[in-house]
């Protein structure tokens, strides 16, 4: 027994180290699925395109002022935007304009946009 060659013991030792390493890797991989899901959900939940579409619809509405809509038609237009946002996008939308202001030589109208879908709340004042 005393004369055995013990040169290969490091192989066994490395085996143990690799086993311990694999254990910790498994722990990390276990966490990664959950982290990936949370991040992906966060990105998917954010209604970027919904907000952009809404802004476009609101700008179209203010463009249509020049076509000479009657006050009743204007009211219907606003009601439609609000109703479609609620029906299709599940978002409570409210927008209004205040008196036009002179900004760098141009007359611009401040439009206030409010958007809330239970997860994301968005408020904007845009000079259009």
């Amino acid at each position: 027994m005393a004369c055995m060659n013990e040169d290969g013991q490091w192989i066994v030792l490395m085996g143990l180290l690799v086993a311990v390493g694999l254990f910790f890797l498994a722990l990390i991989i276990n966490q990664s699925a959950l982290v990936g899901q949370t991040t992906a959900e966060g990105v998917l939940e954010f209604p970027k395109n919904d907000i952009r579409d809404l802004r476009l619809a609101i700008f179209d509405y203010y463009d249509s002022y020049e076509e000479g809509l009657t006050p009743l038609e204007q009211q219907h237009y606003v009601d439609d935007i609000v109703r479609i946002s609620l029906e299709r996008k599940n978002a409570v939308v409210h927008f209004w304009n205040t008196t036009p202001e002179e900004i760098s030589g141009r007359t611009l109208c401040p439009i206030h946009i409010h958007y809330h879908n239970g997860v994301t709340k968005y408020d904007e004042t845009v000079y259009y």
């Binding site: 599940n90 409570v92 409210h94 809330h116 239970g118």
Partner: peptide, 13 residues
């Protein structure tokens, strides 16, 4: 769930 109250329009969904 996703119930919410919007305080600027006083809407409860």
């Amino acid at each position: 769930p996703r119930w919410f109250y919007d305080d600027s329009t006083k809407t409860f969904v």
